[in-house]
């Protein structure tokens, strides 16, 4: 564990806490993409199957359980909470799952380091995570008034991936034989997906304006 990895994990955790607090405090999920949250649920379930087979550390296990529980809580609120579910932008959140899930599944079957169920699902989760934010970004673009917390949520999520890249560089330089090309390339793609958002987020912050993304 190095400082970049820890900072990345904490940023990831913070992004989810921001989203949970926002929804709980405002009783609203306006501007939040249920599709992205459900894709993250698929990502976490497929990746953390090793909770049953492989113990890495208490930190690792606890964080995995927190990510799973918090994501399923968000989905539950958006689908079933009496007040919150009414505020969901169903008509705007139209991204099709299959455009992301199917290509990632095919890619994971072809490009993996071992053709076993566990390994293919793990690789699938790596590919899917890289693009899971897309429905959220599309929804943000369609939302005229992006509230601060939704903007912060996406910004923190993007920062988490950028910090992971620093973590990989650090590990590559300090650990012998540490390399994981599929994870690195997916992580870089995932970070690039955010660059456009980062640009407008920082611009609106510097100009003290409300965040809005050009159509």
């Amino acid at each position: 564990m190095n400082i970049f990895r820890l900072a990345g994990d904490m940023t990831h955790l913070l992004s989810i806490i921001v989203l949970l607090l926002k929804m709980n405090a405002t009783r609203s999920c306006r501007g939040v993409s249920l599709k992205t949250q459900e894709l993250y649920a698929v990502v976490f379930v497929c990746r953390y199957l090793d909770l049953f087979t492989n113990f890495i550390s208490l930190y690792n296990t606890v964080m995995k359980l927190i990510f799973l529980a918090s994501t399923f809580t968000i989905i539950y609120w958006m689908r079933f909470h009496k007040v919150i579910r009414v505020t969901y932008d169903r008509e705007q959140d139209t991204f099709r799952y299959q455009f992301l899930v199917l290509p990632c599944l095919v890619l994971a079957m072809v490009l993996n380091s071992e053709f076993t169920v566990m390994e293919v699902l793990w690789t699938f989760s790596i590919y899917l995570e890289a693009v899971a934010i897309l429905p959220q970004l599309v929804l943000l673009q369609r939302t005229n008034n992006i509230d601060n917390l939704t903007g912060n949520y996406v910004f923190l999520l993007g920062s988490y991936r950028a910090l992971y890249i620093l973590n990989w560089i650090y590990r590559f330089m300090t650990e012998p034989n540490y390399r994981q090309y599929l994870v690195w390339i997916s992580g870089i793609v995932q970070t690039i997906v955010y660059i456009d958002f980062f640009y407008y987020y920082i611009k609106s912050w510097r100009n003290n304006e409300k965040l809005s993304l050009p159509a």
């Binding site: 994990d9 964080m63 540490y178 390399r179």
Partner: peptide, 10 residues
Amino acid sequence: AAGKGAHDEL
């Protein structure tokens, strides 16, 4: 921990 071994991240 090359390739498949590197599953210690979140």
